[in-house]
Amino acid sequence: MNKIHFYIYALAFLMMPVTSKAQEKMSPLADIPGFRDKLETMSAKVQSISSDFIQEKNLVVLSEKIISKGIFLFRKENNIRWEYVDPYRYLIIISNGKMYTRDDKNQKVFDIETNKMFREMNRFISGCIQGDILKNEEEYATEYYENSSGYFVKLIPRDEKMRQMLNEVQIWFDKADLTVSSLRMVESGEDYTLITFKNKKLNNEIPLEKFSF
């Protein structure tokens, strides 16, 4: 697995929980360490997340959108299920040091532990779920904003090769529970993918079988 594959799969998981307040005016966040502390405290309390999601791929130049829907599940430690159900079926599971993907015809299993790229990717994904990604200032330049209902963080990859694919990642956090409310990945050429999470539930019982393959 090369670096590009790592980015593709990693980006698929950068996406977390949801409700965008993008239209409200944002102002720069004054207390960034305070926000990070609160996020860390919240992450420690969250044992599981389940949510519906809507993915909206915006092809800006063509004025077209491709919309897909699915179900997201997370259970500590490091069990992730990302399942597209409409209008196509595609499943990604990360669990027990392995990553599994399946569509109508093919299924694949990758060993995270024995592959440096997958190890990095797993670290990246976990960082997003736990909020550690915001501490990764070596790889991302970050900007913080807030309004009455949420926090908004903009991450700009420092690596030029990654920036050729992805100009920036924008994450909205819900102020009420500090979970990620939506996420936008902006590509070169202004096309972007917006993920919105709905019917989010924290700390409900998710059977481990959901993460087996």
């Binding site: 593709i8 980006l11 698929a12 063509l62 196509y88 590509e187 993918t193």
Partner: peptide
Amino acid sequence: KPIGETHRILFITETGLK
């Protein structure tokens, strides 16, 4: 997608990456 006399074809991952 047809655009006038031309056609545009995009290949993206299921997760949205072009």
